[in-house]
Design a binder for these strands. Sequence first.
DNA 1: CATAACCGGATGAAATTACTCCGCTTTGTT
DNA 2: AACAAAGCGGAGTAATTTCATCCGGTTATG
Lengths: 213, 213
Amino acid sequence: MAGTTPRLRADARRNRDLIVTAAQRLFLEQGIDVPLDEVARQAGVGIGTLYRRFPDRDALLRAVAEDTLRRLADLVEAARREEPDAWHALCRFLRSCAELRLGELAARLDPHLHRQMRTGQDLDEIRQRVIATVLELAARAQADGALRADAGPLDIAMLMTLHVYAPANVSGDQAMRRMVDIMLDGLRAGGGAVLPGAPSTDVDLRRYTAVEP
Amino acid sequence: MAGTTPRLRADARRNRDLIVTAAQRLFLEQGIDVPLDEVARQAGVGIGTLYRRFPDRDALLRAVAEDTLRRLADLVEAARREEPDAWHALCRFLRSCAELRLGELAARLDPHLHRQMRTGQDLDEIRQRVIATVLELAARAQADGALRADAGPLDIAMLMTLHVYAPANVSGDQAMRRMVDIMLDGLRAGGGAVLPGAPSTDVDLRRYTAVEP
DNA sequence: CATAACCGGATGAAATTACTCCGCTTTGTT
DNA sequence: AACAAAGCGGAGTAATTTCATCCGGTTATG
């Protein structure tokens, strides 16, 4: 991502963004193997334009992943910055994350990125930032007594990549929101465990987050 | 499904089951558009065998759906029968449902079944049974004061179709189990809502279950 | 042991998807 | 304003994937 992009003409830049956005949506709706023609069509650009900017599917995949991680980082950092209370910050982040389905997208994208190691460094840096911030919030919320003591980072990670098939006439957004709210209720301090089940906190931590390693 | 199957030779029957089982697994792992060749391969039978038993993809889809719904019905009815306490029955059902990912499978399958209405009747009958039993359990649990008053059938429906991308080295089963446990904690009476968000109980009920209509 | 049912995979048809190429349009610069 | 460079679109072709059939050999069952 260094000198490869000396500059991009205004229209080119705009189209590039349209493509990434369309890809993001389609990856979620139809899986990451959607035909690239479809992506171009949805983005409202010609297929040639897409292929010029992204020589192959992997390039597009990486671009989408980078954008996703970046938005994720923005979300969690904004929440941390603007929300004094750690628990509220966590709630806010997880909620927006679910609504935008960013965590899910990242989780789906991730396995496909490890086949191509190049440019993986950039992505990894952002990912680490996300992980660190989320963990910090969780730790603080726990220290404040707001987050259950037996909740682990793994729980947060899973909350981030949650997905439900929304019943008809309920938007995916609403469904996700509701799910997350319920889970946050479950994670709040004060409730005992309904069923035995290991707290799953005894597993190596740093490795679990939106984007699994 | 009436007189179409006068009888099936022992090996034929066995192979049929192998195919359905393999399809079930692959539909979950790779989506319902896996190549049929792959299904045959995983089932350990020739492609010819598959096509003889299931003339086209839709036939296989329907067979898998039927099996899935049947297992779902067995689960919920067994839970209701063997567990005196409604809340515990509900927990048990939702837990096993999540572990086997039956709800998710049903949800994924459902939209594709409505293109072909034939034989839809049989399926619908089972589905109705599942829905009715789950709703009954939920109502009873609520009456017992175990399930939060502001929890709706929609919440149960969503719990059934939940899915998380399990982080590496954590099995999907474990992940699902944990998620469901947390959500059940959240749904238990006693906790207040973390965030506003409509209780989503004000939507038509009978229509939301594992298999959305 | 006879035969009807069943098995498997090689095989060709059909559909999907990937990717290139080039004449025309837009942008930004002098 | 006028020119050069960068960008655009999509028709068209190649490659791959997927579907679906057919038939010689095999196995269950009475």
